[in-house]
Design a protein around this nucleic acid. Structure first.
Lengths: 212, 212
DNA sequence: GCACAGTGGAGGTCAAGATCGGCGTGCAGT
DNA sequence: ACTGCACGCCGATCTTGACCTCCACTGTGC
């Protein structure tokens, strides 16, 4: 199962690809290896072999291992933040906003090849560049929700951020748990359940007891 | 601030310690370095220097880097699971259970030297031994809450686990966010806020959507 | 037939985990 | 009190493993 089941060439005649296609293929191969092994355990040899090319080609497309990783990370960081922001902007019904946000997390986690691990389980969070991006994701998602909470409940920003982080954590953890457990519950059902939990939790806050 | 502010000797005369005390001191030094740098970036030289000893002493107490890390990890894994289980067993009032669980996560995160990073932000989750322990923590906490949810709401186990994972994620993420944000909200206030969010979310479930 | 672009495998370098001979200190026996 | 002993500790070193480049080969356009 070294390089047989993917979309690259299987063996023998090395296929010549245009740079753009080669780059995309390298990114795909790198993603599979990074997701399966993590950053540190993933060797450049593995990625090259997975893509069916040799190491020099890899270094002709990416200056180093870190650049390769960051390219992938950026893609998925942008994806999840955009999905959550769309969930906020897509409607003005807050209940529907909660549902869409939860769906965003489940979609992100359910995306093929478990790429979410690059963001949520990165073994490079100590590296400044990676840490900055990962924190930016979490803070971006929290910020989007925070604004809505503030404008619709009137709680202080600090409180709203805490609530938003709780909601984000619930969706994130539940989605990961749902996937790790082998999708024992149908996706729509799981989304509805977590959305209900979140909505019931947050919906009572407007104009309710603030400092209770 | 290399080795000045800790409990080790500052410089000059190397103090001879009994094995037990030396071991505890090495564990403390290792925890500080692992928390600050992560597993991979932490060098054995750093840990030895932090403890004020040389590397061979370190290897006289621990067979390798991994053993040292696992010793620390086990301690904190046991701690958080026990805290959540105590929160469940400490009372039969479910609202108080939610409050105690949230408090458990905040206490764990607020514990000195940010040791929670060893569990929640480990950069060794790919390693089987570490992964097993970290997953055991999450599943242990979820299981404790799941049982209560099942017995008090009657939802299916799969649904209860999803709800529990959501609650766990909310507490965990909110606690980390609260700490990362510099404790902008007093601890008791933050706990109450997240507890309210969680309780309002879960409290409506009994006899509501399922068996009502 | 020939130049050339791009590939494949072998090697350099370096960081970090793991380890060996010397040193100094405290203690027991006479 | 003096001497030999044992033990814990340290500086310096080895080795492994992984990232990152250099020589021989192959297929194509004129």
């Amino acid at each position: 199962m070294t390089a047989a089941g993917n979309g690259a060439q299987t063996a023998g005649r090395p296929t010549r690809l245009p740079r753009s296609a080669r780059r995309k293929q390298l990114l795909a191969a790198a993603q599979e290896v990074f997701v399966a092994q993590g950053y540190h355990a993933a060797a450049m040899d593995d990625i090259a072999e997975r893509a069916g090319v040799s190491k020099p080609v890899l270094y002709q497309h990416f200056p180093g291992k870190m650049d390769l990783y960051l390219a992938l990370l950026d893609t998925h960081c942008d994806a999840i933040v955009a999905q959550v922001q769309d969930a906020m902007r897509g409607t003005s019904d807050n209940k529907e906003r909660v549902g869409a946000s939860v769906r965003a997390y489940f979609d992100f986690v359910d995306h093929e090849s478990e790429a979410f691990r690059l963001v949520f389980e990165s073994d490079l969070r100590n590296d400044p560049a990676v840490r900055q991006r990962v924190e930016r994701v979490e803070q971006g998602c929290i910020a989007a929700i925070t604004d809505t909470i503030i404008s619709d409940t009137g709680v202080s920003r600090a409180h709203a951020e805490l609530l938003a982080s709780g909601l984000v954590g619930a969706a994130e953890t539940a989605a990961q748990f749902w996937l790790a457990g082998g999708r024992q519950v149908p996706k729509a059902e799981a989304e509805a359940l977590v959305a209900a939990l979140s909505w019931r939790g947050i919906a009572s806050f407007p104009l309710q007891g603030e400092s209770a």
